[in-house]
Simulated assay, not measured.
Amino acid sequence: MGNSSSVVALPDVDSLDRQIGAGLRRLRQSRGWSLEELATRSGVSRATLSRLENAEVSATAVALCKLASAFGLTASRLLHQVETEASPLIRRSEQPVWDDPATGFARRAVSPPAQNLAGEVIEGALPAGTVIAYDLPPRPGLEHHLVMLEGALTLTVEGVAHELRPGDCLRYVLHGATRFETPPMLGARYLIFMV
Rank of each mutant, 00 (worst) to 15 (best):
V121N: 06
S5A: 14
R165T: 11
L35G: 07
L149K: 06
G119I: 03
L27D: 02
T156Q: 11
S6V: 08
P112T: 09
Q81D: 14
E56S: 02
R92E: 14
L27T: 03
L35S: 04
R41K: 14
D17L: 15
V160C: 09
E120F: 06
E53L: 03
G119P: 05
T103G: 07
L89Q: 13
E143P: 02
L191S: 07
P88Y: 08
I122T: 12
A125T: 15
S5V: 13
H144D: 10
I20K: 03
D100M: 05
S111E: 14
A86P: 00
F193H: 14
P101D: 08
R108G: 03
L142V: 09
M185A: 14
P113L: 06
A63I: 02
Y134W: 04
A125N: 06
T156H: 09
G23Q: 10
S30F: 02
E163W: 00
R28C: 09
H80P: 00
L174Q: 12
A22H: 12
E158M: 01
A106N: 11
L64S: 05
L136P: 00
G72P: 11
T74W: 02
G2Y: 03
L27M: 12
K66E: 09
E53P: 02
T74I: 01
G2I: 06
E56M: 11
Y172P: 01
E83F: 13
D99W: 12
E56V: 00
G23Y: 11
Q115H: 03
E56C: 03
G72N: 10
L191A: 05
T40M: 10
M194P: 01
L79W: 10
G141Y: 05
L146K: 05
G23K: 02
L67W: 01
A177R: 12
R139W: 03
S42G: 05
S42L: 02
H144F: 07
M1S: 15
L191D: 00
E120W: 03
R51W: 07
R51Q: 15
Y190F: 15
R179N: 04
E85D: 13
L186W: 00
M1H: 14
D135M: 12
A106F: 02
S42C: 03
P140S: 03
A102W: 08
P138H: 10
W33S: 11
H145M: 10
S6N: 14
Q29M: 05
D99P: 13
V110F: 10
R18W: 03
A188L: 07
V110G: 00
H145P: 04
L191R: 09
R25L: 08
Q19Y: 08
A106L: 09
G129P: 06
G167S: 07
L89T: 13
H162S: 03
A106Q: 15
V131G: 04
A22P: 04
L73H: 05
S5W: 01
H144A: 10
A39N: 10
R171F: 02
G2T: 15
T156Y: 06
S58C: 07
I90V: 09
